[in-house]
Design a protein around this nucleic acid. Structure first.
Length: 139
DNA sequence: GCCAACGTTGGC
DNA sequence: GCCAACGTTGGC
């Protein structure tokens, strides 16, 4: 089991929209970055991820699960781009903001803190546990 | 809304 | 294959 972080602008695709999709989930499409794509290729069904709102909110707001492995991105004909499907598992008790992550020494190596521009990021098991603790949810 | 940082593109 | 120019992202 691996852990990830999916970043989205609430204006484009929000946590509420993800929740509304229910167990059907949704394609994480539109990614046009090789590093992010490679991360998605490495995902397995059942992997967990944080759902992060960028821009105004800058906070982890929910937990998602990978329900389909990488497949061609339906929003483009370009065969280079692939995406996974994810479904919402549940919201966090307390949103974990970027500021909170920066202030937490155990998260100083977190990709979110150091490379905020990468839209699909790996999260280590330790970081996952720390963020769950801060979010007030079970790991 | 601005601007710095990063990634990608394309000319040489 | 290198590197300058450009576009996009996202924190501030």
């Amino acid at each position: 089991m691996q852990y990830w972080l999916f970043k989205s602008e609430p204006n484009t695709w929000s946590w509420d929209q993800q929740v509304a999709r229910g167990d059907k989930g949704e394609e994480w499409d539109g990614v046009r970055n090789y590093q992010a794509r490679n991360n998605m290729r490495a995902m397995e069904i059942g992997d967990r991820g944080f759902f992060y709102h960028s821009m105004k909110e800058k906070a982890i707001v929910g937990v998602v699960e990978v329900i389909a492995k990488a497949h061609p991105d339906s929003t483009t004909d370009d065969p280079r781009w692939e995406c996974v499907d994810i479904k919402a598992i549940g919201p966090v008790e307390t949103p974990v903001t970027l500021d909170m992550c920066k202030a937490e020494p155990r998260l100083e190596k977190m990709v979110l803190v150091n490379n905020s521009r990468l839209s699909v990021q790996p999260v280590s098991a330790e970081e996952w546990a720390v963020v769950c603790e801060m979010a007030g949810i079970a790991p």
